[in-house]
């Protein structure tokens, strides 16, 4: 391939800006086809779910629904949003995401602030203390038994308290804080500002971009997590999350085969497990799908910051 391009080289240098060499043109075409294919493969399954969720459930069983619904119906969504367990799950998911993100972000930022102060007396010890946690953890059973002893079973707080801070997010924040200019902080210190004032009034406002990044990481983690609900709150329906309720629907489907059983919704029309799952999936992914395109700049920075440290 390289040989071929070299042969056509003199020609292409002559009109480099005007005309592309045949090899280049072939490349652009192949590349475009590949990326279009990639986009279709990525998007199609999601759009298909959307189509199924808006289609009449009984009609959907016949198959053949691709991008657009065949018999438009809102019944699936009406059913999903009137099921008590799914509604409770939605509220718990929203509550854990909001509370967990706000608290987690503040506390992790505070920890990162401490660990990034050059004069902090326990800097080395504190950093090491948290880095070790990235490598060694107790594993599922000891953690489960501990949380049980701490009273985290059948409780909302199991979603919030254990995840208040973590080494990875701390390191992303810390590496950003370490690169901030120190002049502002020094002059504030001369004016008699304490560490807490510096943190709240100077460092936090300067960190807005990286705070947005970490907030996104925490929020997505909170919204998407289901395993904690299954492990600790299986028995108490008032604390299960939306993801866990959706997981129960999926588990029922994988053990009984694709949705063939009919069931009657409150209003009398047909719904099937498959269409409920589709509508549930769409409701579950909606908040994130609406938000993430606007936060791209932030998570790309976060990924690169994290990787530099890695």
């Amino acid at each position: 391939m390289a040989e071929k391009t070299l042969v056509t080289a003199p020609e292409s240098t002559k009109h480099r800006t005007v005309k592309k060499s045949p090899a280049d043109r072939a490349f652009v075409i192949c590349n475009t086809i590949f990326l279009i294919l990639f986009t279709v493969v990525t998007l199609y399954p999601v759009i298909n779910q959307l189509a199924i969720s808006f289609n009449d459930a009984a009609d959907a069983l016949r198959g053949g629904i691709y991008v657009l619904p065949r018999q438009l119906s809102l019944q699936n969504y009406v059913t999903v949003l009137s099921r008590q367990n799914l509604l409770t799950g939605l509220w718990i998911s929203v509550a854990r995401t909001v509370l967990g993100t706000v608290l987690g972000l503040f506390i992790t930022a505070l920890l990162a602030f401490m660990c990034s102060r050059p004069k902090y007396l326990l800097k080395k010890q504190m950093n090491l203390f948290w880095i070790i946690t990235m490598y060694v953890n107790g594993g599922m059973i000891p953690v489960f038994l501990l949380y049980k002893d701490l009273g985290f079973t059948n409780s909302f707080w199991v979603y919030i308290v254990p995840g208040l801070t973590g080494a990875f997010n701390m390191m992303v924040l810390r590496s950003y804080m370490e690169n901030l200019p120190v002049s502002m902080e020094e002059s504030a210190q001369l004016d008699g500002a304490g560490y807490m004032t510096i943190f709240l009034k100077i460092i936090l406002p300067l960190c807005t971009p990286v705070l947005a990044t970490v907030a996104l990481f925490i929020a997505v983690g909170q919204w998407n997590s289901w395993f904690d609900a299954m492990l600790y709150n299986r028995m108490s329906e008032q604390y299960t999350t939306l993801q866990y309720e959706l997981m129960k629907l999926l588990a029922a489907a994988t053990t009984s085969g694709a949705g063939t059983q009919y069931s009657h919704s409150n209003t009398g029309s047909m719904v099937t497990p498959a269409s409920i799952r589709a509508a549930g999936s769409i409701v579950t992914m909606l908040p994130i799908v609406c938000l993430y395109p606007f936060l791209q700049r932030y998570f790309i920075t976060g990924m690169t910051l994290g990787a530099v440290k890695e």
Binding site: T42, L43, N224, W226, Q243, M285, V289, F299
Partner: peptide
């Protein structure tokens, strides 16, 4: 391309 990353494994 980022979209699927933000979906939970359940979805």
């Amino acid at each position: 391309s980022y979209l699927p990353h933000f979906l939970s494994w359940i979805v």
